[in-house]
Design a protein around this nucleic acid. Sequence first.
DNA 1: TTGTACGCGTTATCAT
DNA 2: ATGATAACGCGTACAA
Lengths: 340, 340
Amino acid sequence: METYGKESSKENLTIHDVAKALGVSASTVSRAISGKGRIGEKTRQRVLQYIDEKSFYPNASARSLAQSKTYNIAIIMPEVKDLVDMPFFHTCMHGAEEIAQVNDYDLLIVTTDGTNIKPLERMVNNRKVDGMILTRLYREDAFVDYLKSTGIPFVAIGNSDDPDVYTVDHDNYGGCRELVGLLLSKGIRRVAYLGGGMEQTVNIKRFEGYCDGLKEAGKQVDNSIVYTDLISKVKVSKAVEEVLKTDTDCILCQDDYICDEVVHYLADKGIDIPKKMKVASCHHSKLLDNFPVTITSLKFDTMEIGRRACKTLLGIINGEKVYKNTLLDYEINLKESTKG
Amino acid sequence: METYGKESSKENLTIHDVAKALGVSASTVSRAISGKGRIGEKTRQRVLQYIDEKSFYPNASARSLAQSKTYNIAIIMPEVKDLVDMPFFHTCMHGAEEIAQVNDYDLLIVTTDGTNIKPLERMVNNRKVDGMILTRLYREDAFVDYLKSTGIPFVAIGNSDDPDVYTVDHDNYGGCRELVGLLLSKGIRRVAYLGGGMEQTVNIKRFEGYCDGLKEAGKQVDNSIVYTDLISKVKVSKAVEEVLKTDTDCILCQDDYICDEVVHYLADKGIDIPKKMKVASCHHSKLLDNFPVTITSLKFDTMEIGRRACKTLLGIINGEKVYKNTLLDYEINLKESTKG
DNA sequence: TTGTACGCGTTATCAT
DNA sequence: ATGATAACGCGTACAA
């Protein structure tokens, strides 16, 4: 096994090689790189210059083993099937990655549906990551229970009642409440609510905002124009059909996916927006940009969600003091769809 | 150091713990797990049962260090700015992850623009991955040059002249050629081509397919209705405006992003599709689904691209024989936009 | 300030 | 078939 010329080839150097070449010990090299422990400034510079020159990079696995730290974090993505709002998750992912990268962490993606925790277990059991970001929260969240039981640091995107869970979220509640208030102040009389399920906490928050927005304006929540189980396009259409029978003059959509269906339905029926019916959405994405009429909506900085989630996670990992619950601001975009 | 009750706590076991408990040596345990090396069937079962019972999982970092293998691969994603066709990349990503997961590999994502190879270098230098998937290919690709120089296994999504590069791609050339032929056979006389830049090899392939499709039908490529530099919406509009001055009866769009703009422009001008102008796109995505008129397009199985890229990469890593260039099939969807 | 020696948990080589 | 032992490359008490 001839290893002559090893140094000059693409064989990887070790701190021992560096140490030998510089006539110091391996620990000195280690210290120079990590910055930990006392070390003379000149030797430190000497080492740093040498490893830069020779392009030495520490072996991540070895470092990992020695420190019990992987410098990896994982982000859990929902199954692709319901990819209607995948852009949201992907944008979060990129935000998280941005922060991870500048902190010399790598981001590992894991896709799984809401029930299968096997992929998480593998990561945790094999100690492939130092922490995790959960991109979705359910009311009774099996992932949360599992992660808590393991003690691994994690941050969830969304809202949780659990005082143990670190969360980062948009202020869905505040946004919806203010939006509803704004709509009512503009002369709109009755606002219907079209939502698609209450399993995810984000939807609960939006609905609460809707309710409190009404109450704040002295109005009652009228259950005959409230829908929270519109899990298919057909159901959305049906709901709009029902709403049209009442004297409702505005439809508030839980997200732009529902809004998409509402707008299409109204267009099909020749019902003018905003003349005959006003429409607003609790979430803005690219989807809304392709409509003939611009839609009033809540705009959130999704990338920032990912960034903050990652920052918080790294904070926890590094034992820093971080906020338990981060609530990011919203922006209300008033557009044509609620004009008049 | 009292370690009583250690087993029941969340302290992680090692193969030594297992070995001691079973009265065998650590190497035996290792063999039982890996399946490598000779080992008695009954001891093997005994070990396997025990580790299952006690939920022992090998430490990934240690294994990594010992084997010089990370069981990680990376996928390089383009910068988020031009997220017009991000869904393509994200879908690839999920496809790759699916395969990675069933092979006990983890997928690490890295975002970078076309010029900055720093993030790649970090991964390679620190040996955090066993291989990489490149989701984009440029004509003179700095990433390819770099990766080749390191010797790390990698697979690129797209097309490359370089005989050293493993690639997986849709048959963009064949698809476009057949699509053009089909359009012409349906009575269309002149097909304009609207493309958005020739840096990426996928666009070159599509354009070549367009040209050869024409030639095959005995037509000449007419440069006055060919655009390959429409890098903004305005430019696309301008191009359509120009094309409308000629007696062109069909516009072939390089991708659905351009198609989006074309359709909107025509709608604004009150030009009926397909009566006054036929439209087709070389790529289908969700974007096309929201149009008032259904669009004839090439449909590719993007998830499968990711899967195959990952399979190929794992094949290379494991020293298996794999195809150098994989070309996946296309599907031509004839819709209203070219009817007549 | 620097060096020595050992540990991190696994795999691989060599005996037995 | 199994066990002892040496890597793998880095971090870190402890010693000097």
